[in-house]
C-alpha cells in the first residue's frame, strides 16, 4: 500500500482530521501529503480560519445584530404576545 495520497483524498482527510477521526495510517499519509503539498496545507489552514471566523461572528451577533426585524413585523408579534397574555 502506498504512502502517497492525492489532493482529493488529502482534502477529504482534512475534515476527518479536524474532527479527530483519523486512524494512525491515515494520519501518517495525511502528514506526508501536506508536507509535500502547499495547496493542501493552505486548504486546511483556510478552512480553520473560516471556522473560527464563524464562531467569533456568532459570539458578537447578540450585542451587534447586523440585521433588524422590520418595525411592522415587530409590532405585529408584540400585539399577538400582548393578546395572548391578556387572555
Amino acid at each position: 500500500m502506498s504512502f502517497f495520497i492525492n489532493c482529493k483524498e488529502a482534502t477529504h482527510l482534512s475534515s476527518l482530521k479536524e474532527a479527530r477521526q483519523l486512524n494512525f495510517k491515515q494520519k501518517f499519509k495525511y502528514y506526508v501529503h501536506v508536507n509535500l503539498c502547499p495547496p493542501c496545507k493552505r486548504f486546511e489552514k483556510q478552512l480553520q480560519k473560516i471556522r473560527t471566523s464563524i464562531l467569533e461572528f456568532k459570539n458578537k451577533l447578540e450585542e451587534n445584530p447586523p440585521h433588524r426585524m422590520s418595525e411592522s413585523k415587530k409590532d405585529n408579534i408584540q400585539n399577538s404576545i400582548n393578546n395572548h397574555l391578556n387572555k
Partner: peptide
C-alpha cells in the same frame, strides 16, 4: 428579535 433574525440570516 434582532439577534434571532441575525442568527437565522446566517
Amino acid at each position: 428579535s434582532d439577534y434571532f433574525v441575525s442568527l437565522t440570516m446566517l
